[in-house]
Computed example of a mutant assay.
Amino acid sequence: MQYVAPIGVGLLYAFLMSLIREPHRRRFNAIMVAGAGAAYLSGGGLGGWEFAFTVVATYVAYRGLESWTFIGIAWLLHTAWDIVHHIKGNPIIPFLHTSSLGCAICDPVIALWCFAGGKTPRELVEWGIPRESEIHPRSAPHHR
């Protein structure tokens, strides 16, 4: 359950965020990942590296104000930071030893949703269904 629940959390996050209309959805998610980038600051388990990571994460989140790809990259950066903290034994939630591991499992799920453009569930389904014109493309006119 420790490995499955974080996937559910990531899916739930994507579903709830998809209820926000665009362009607000993308901007709100950029702000969310910027906050996640600063989540470890209060613990300070990696000293000055915490500040360096926060600077990088903030820049990438800022670029995410206009790009779902950058939001996805920011979530993957946070995943890497979660793994470092899990290995070091300095979890994101001090009283939950595996919280950084859970976060490292959850964050890539959110990143995948971002790389897909932060679409609603309906848009994702429609996006995955080929259009009639893609199934039976019309013959291209012949040029002589």
Rank of each mutant, 00 (worst) to 15 (best):
M1P: 10
Q2L: 15
Q2V: 15
Y3S: 09
V9Y: 13
L11V: 12
L11A: 08
L12E: 05
Y13M: 06
A14P: 02
A14W: 00
F15L: 11
S18E: 08
S18Y: 13
S18L: 13
S18H: 12
L19Q: 14
L19Y: 12
I20P: 03
I20F: 10
E22Q: 15
P23F: 11
H24Y: 11
R26D: 04
R26P: 06
F28I: 15
F28P: 04
N29R: 03
N29G: 07
A30W: 00
A30M: 04
A30L: 06
I31V: 12
I31M: 12
M32Q: 03
M32V: 09
V33K: 00
A34W: 02
G35E: 13
G35M: 15
A39S: 15
Y40A: 10
Y40W: 14
Y40I: 09
L41T: 14
S42T: 15
S42M: 13
G43S: 14
G44V: 08
G45F: 01
G45L: 04
L46S: 07
L46F: 10
G47W: 07
G47C: 05
F51P: 09
F53V: 08
T54P: 03
T54M: 13
V56I: 15
T58G: 14
V60H: 09
A61Q: 01
Y62Q: 01
R63C: 10
R63A: 08
R63W: 07
G64S: 05
L65Y: 10
L65P: 02
W68V: 06
T69W: 06
T69S: 13
F70E: 02
I71K: 00
I71R: 01
G72H: 00
G72M: 01
I73P: 00
I73D: 00
W75V: 00
L76K: 04
L76Y: 04
L77K: 01
T79S: 10
A80R: 06
W81R: 08
W81M: 03
D82Y: 02
I83G: 04
I83R: 07
I87L: 10
K88S: 13
P91H: 07
P91M: 09
I93T: 08
I93Y: 10
F95M: 11
L96Q: 12
L96I: 15
H97C: 02
T98Y: 11
S99I: 02
S100E: 00
L101R: 03
A104F: 01
I105G: 00
C106T: 03
D107S: 02
P108D: 04
P108I: 04
P108M: 07
A111K: 06
A111F: 05
A116L: 12
A116Y: 06
G117I: 04
G117H: 09
G118C: 12
G118M: 09
K119Y: 07
K119A: 13
T120A: 08
T120V: 11
P121N: 15
L124W: 04
V125Y: 04
V125I: 07
E126K: 13
E126G: 12
G128D: 05
G128K: 06
R131T: 08
E132R: 08
E132K: 05
E132V: 09
E134W: 08
E134S: 07
I135A: 04
P137C: 09
P137S: 11
P141H: 15
P141W: 11
H142M: 05
H143W: 10
H143S: 11
